[in-house]
């Protein structure tokens, strides 16, 4: 995953981050898989509102076995499934940074 946008562009923060669900507890892994499945099944995101600016967009390349899925979730995306996945990924990243 990588995050772009925001009020400024920081090259160091735009680098991709890899989250290996296999390193999570079985319960957390199952929760993340459910969130990913729900986000992938959600209706496509509409374009950002005209005039919106400085919002961030998180691009996800999800590899599962031989399958690869793509998702883009922006701060102005209000779909509850994608927002739930983004919030969970934020929690994971914060937990990773604390280790």
């Amino acid at each position: 995953m990588r995050t772009e946008g925001g009020v400024a562009f920081f090259p160091g923060l735009a680098r991709p981050t890899v989250i290996d669900l296999g390193t999570l507890s079985p319960a957390d892994e199952a929760r993340m898989r459910d969130l990913v499945a729900a986000a992938l099944a959600a209706p496509p995101a509409p374009p950002p509102p005209k005039g919106a600016a400085d919002y961030r967009t998180t691009f996800l390349s999800i590899e599962d076995g031989g399958d690869v899925h793509q998702l883009a979730i922006s701060d102005v995306d209000t779909d509850p499934s994608r927002r739930a996945l983004l919030d969970a990924l934020g929690e994971l990243r914060r937990a990773m940074s604390r280790r």
């Binding site: 925001g6 009020v7 923060l13 509102p49 005209k50 005039g51 919106a52 600016a53 400085d54 919002y55 961030r56 701060d75 102005v76 919030d87 934020g90 929690e91 914060r94």
Partner: peptide
């Protein structure tokens, strides 16, 4: 959000 490192304009308001 939590520890949110940003501010943005969503076309209606500031965040």
């Amino acid at each position: 959000d939590q520890d949110y490192n940003n501010a943005f304009w969503n076309s209606q308001q500031m965040v």
